[in-house]
């Protein structure tokens, strides 16, 4: 984007990282941003007994997986080169393929594959230690909030 070779980390990605790391609910869930690039993000959620949905098996509750994937989707939007100042989820659809293996972290990978002036479109996948069998997939639409006049 600039005439010179990039020096140091992309400032937009730094802003996106700060934005994500400041989210109180993400901190409560123990989310860790593990990768961030143009329009994509990867966030890990370590296994935590407080997040269990099925006490007989120790499987993490679907709601925690939704929160992880929603956060990751928002992160991918914020990391997109055409992102606005902020974003909010408009619609989110999640399919749960199988229970996440108890004791394993869940990793969400999200990609913002299309951006318009007002809306960003995202797809995401959630994986545990078996990368060939997703735990969940999701698609979402996010409202892109831009300052007036931009």
């Amino acid at each position: 984007m600039t005439e010179d070779a990039p020096q140091g980390p992309d400032p937009r990605l730094q802003i996106a990282r700060q934005f994500i790391e400041a989210i109180p609910h993400a901190r409560a869930l123990g989310l860790r941003l593990t990768d961030l690039g143009a329009g994509r993000a990867e966030i890990a959620m370590p296994w935590d007994g407080r997040l269990v949905g099925d006490p007989d098996t120790g499987v993490i509750h679907g709601g925690a997986v939704s929160a992880l994937m929603d956060t990751c989707g928002g992160a991918a939007v914020m990391a997109h080169p055409g992102a606005g100042a902020s974003t909010a989820t408009l619609g989110f659809r999640i399919d749960y393929m199988r229970p996440a293996t108890p004791g394993q972290a869940i990793r969400a990978q999200a990609e913002c594959y299309h951006m318009t002036r007002f809306v960003a479109f995202v797809r995401a996948v959630a994986l545990d230690d078996d990368p060939d069998r997703p735990v969940a997939t999701a698609t979402g639409s996010f409202a892109v909030e831009r300052p007036e006049g931009t």
Binding site: I23, H25, A28, G63, A64, S66, A67, D70, T71
Partner: peptide, 27 residues
């Protein structure tokens, strides 16, 4: 609870916390 916040600037509840709340209510 403060821990449910997703956007500290507004502030607003986290969309994921909202989704989880509705999912738990259904289950």
């Amino acid at each position: 609870d403060e821990r449910l916040i997703g956007n500290p600037m507004l502030p607003a509840l986290h969309g994921g916390a909202t989704a989880a709340f509705l999912e738990v209510a259904a289950i």
